[in-house]
């Protein structure tokens, strides 16, 4: 059986990878991917705690399902926004996207 700190440590490493990606990347699509990595690491934490603290009533797994739902909604809307920006400007560098309306 996997010790709980191993799961949490893996999730922490995955989260910091995603954090580094969000902070340093300039391409909006890649920032979106890094955010997905961070959401996955949070889900790992939830599932790990659900396995160890209440295996018969896994509330953490249900929260992970809701996180997945919100992540899917977020990706759909964010990609639509990115596609609109890419159609209008041929560029998704977030350093250059600094106007709400142009």
């Amino acid at each position: 059986m996997v010790p709980l700190p191993y799961v949490l440590g893996l999730a922490a490493l995955l989260f910091s990878l995603g954090l580094y990606g969000v902070l340093t990347q300039r391409n909006a699509v890649r920032i979106l991917m890094a955010i997905e990595l961070m959401l996955n690491s949070v889900n790992l934490n939830l599932v790990g705690f659900a396995r160890y603290l209440e295996p018969d009533r896994p509330g953490g797994q249900l929260f992970a399902i809701f996180v997945m739902t919100v992540a899917a909604a977020e990706v759909a809307v964010a990609l639509a926004i990115i596609l609109v920006i890419a159609h209008r400007r041929d560029d998704v560098d977030i350093d250059k996207i600094n106007l709400l309306k142009w």
Partner: peptide
Amino acid sequence: GIYLVLGAEFLAAAQILIYVGAITTLI
């Protein structure tokens, strides 16, 4: 796969369906 190891079978299937099947494809 880690979800499967932790005994969350439904979540593993949902992860494959939603993340691998939908989100990656969408990106």
